[in-house]
Design a protein around this nucleic acid. Structure first.
Lengths: 216, 216
DNA sequence: GTCTATAGCAGGATAGAC
DNA sequence: GTCTATCCTGCTATAGAC
C-alpha cells in the first residue's frame, strides 16, 4: 500500500529533474549546485551524497533521463523497417513527428530540455557526448539508412546521411531558433506556427531529397 | 615612423582577441577573466581597466570584432540586388560562399569563432543578442527577400524567410556538427569534405526551394 | 538519509604602488 | 597604463551532528 514503491528515491529524482532543467537552459558552467539543490528543495550537500559531485550529476542526467527518451523516439521510427507502403514522404513525416513532436517540441517542456541538452553537448562536449553518439546519433542515422535502402536499394549511404542531416539540421534549428523565425517573419505569430514549420520542413526536405538526377 | 599608429592599444586588442577565442570555444560562464588575461599575457586587472568588467568585455567583442565581419559578409551578397543573370541557384551559391567560406568556415579560425559566437547567443541570450538581430539577422533575411523578389515578384515573404532559414540551418549545422557528419558517414574523411558538403547543401536547397506547386 | 557548518579554493572587482 | 596585492563573494566538496 506504499505509494512510492516505484520511486526509489524522491529526492534523487527531484535533483535529476531540476538539474536537467537548469543544465539545459543555462548550461553546465553557469549553473551551481546550490541553485540545483535549492530548486529541488533540499540541502546543498545532497548532490554530493547522491551523485558524488556536480560532474557526475550531469552525466547521470543523460543516463537516467535523456537515454530512455532517445530510445522511445527511435521506437517510433523503427516500424518503417517493415511497413508496407513506404515512401520518402512517409519517412520524412514519421521522422519529423518522432523528433519534432518528441524531443524537439516546444510544447512539451520535458522534450524541449531533451533537445537543448543535445545542442549544448554539440558545442561543449563532455563525457556525455559518448553516450549521445553511441546510443542515439549513430543508431538514428543507421536506422534511417536501412529504411531508405528499402525504398531504393541502390542508394548511396553517404547521400542518405547527408540528406538526413539536412533534415535534422532544420528540425533542431527551427526548434531552438523559433524566436528568430518569429522575429524575422514579423510579429505577430499565428498559433499554429508549429504546424506551418512542420509542413515547410516536410516539403523542403521532400524536394531536397528527391533530386532526380538532373543536378550537376 | 611609429609602427603602431593604427593600433590604438595593443593590450586592449590582445584582450579582445583572446576573449573572443575563449568565449567562442568555452562559453561565457566557463571562462574566467584570469584565463583571458593570462592568454593575453597581461595582468588580471587589465580587463576591468580597459572594459570595466567581464560582461562589458563580452559585449565589446561583438561590437569591435564581430560586427565588422558581419557587415563584410553582407557586402558579398548585396551585389545580387543589381546583378543581371539572377537565378535561385546563383543566390544560393552566393549566400553559401559568403557564409560558409566566411563566418562559418572551418578553415579560417577567425571566422569559425565568429560563427560560434552566434550559436552561443542563440542558446544563451545576453545583450549581445540585440546587436545580432539588429545588425545581422534581420538585414540578412531582408536582403535575401529583396533579391528573391527580383526573381519572382509574386513570391511570399514568409515563404522566402522559411526557405532562407532552412538554408541557414544547414550551414550552421554542418559547420558546427562536422564531427557528427564524419562520425556518422564513417571515417576516414576525404580532404574535400568542405566542398562535398557545400555541393550537397546547394543541391538540397535548390530543389527544396524550387517547389513548383505540385506539392499538397 | 538529511541537514548545518565550514573548509578550501577560485571567481570578479578594486586600491594603490610604480 | 601597468602591475601586485587584496577584498569579498560564491563555488564545490566534506565533516560531522542529528
Amino acid at each position: 500500500m506504499s505509494a512510492n514503491v516505484n520511486q526509489p528515491d524522491p529526492t534523487r529524482e527531484r535533483l535529476l529533474l531540476e538539474a536537467e532543467r537548469l543544465f539545459a537552459t543555462k548550461g553546465y558552467a553557469a549553473v551551481s549546485v546550490r541553485q540545483i539543490t535549492a530548486a529541488a528543495e533540499t540541502n546543498s550537500a545532497a548532490i554530493n551524497y547522491h551523485f558524488g559531485g556536480k560532474k557526475n550529476l550531469y552525466l547521470e542526467v543523460f543516463r537516467q533521463r535523456w537515454r530512455p527518451r532517445a530510445h522511445s523516439t527511435m521506437a517510433k521510427i523503427t516500424p518503417l523497417l517493415e511497413a508496407d507502403d513506404l515512401s520518402v514522404e512517409k519517412v520524412i513525416r514519421t521522422a519529423i513527428d518522432a523528433l519534432w513532436k518528441g524531443p524537439l517540441s516546444h510544447d512539451s517542456q520535458e522534450f524541449f530540455l531533451h533537445g537543448a541538452l543535445i545542442h549544448r553537448e554539440l558545442h561543449n562536449r563532455t563525457e556525455a557526448w559518448d553516450i549521445l553518439v553511441e546510443e542515439a546519433i549513430v543508431p538514428f542515422y543507421d536506422l534511417l539508412y536501412r529504411i531508405f535502402l528499402r525504398i531504393d536499394p541502390t542508394v548511396q549511404k553517404a547521400k542518405v546521411m547527408l540528406n538526413c542531416m539536412s533534415m535534422f539540421s532544420q528540425l533542431v534549428f527551427f526548434s531552438h531558433a523559433r524566436p528568430i523565425a518569429q522575429q524575422v517573419m514579423g510579429q505577430p505569430p499565428p498559433e499554429d506556427v508549429e504546424a506551418i514549420l512542420a509542413d515547410h520542413i516536410t516539403a523542403f526536405c521532400l524536394h531536397g531529397m528527391n533530386q532526380t538526377g538532373d543536378q550537376p
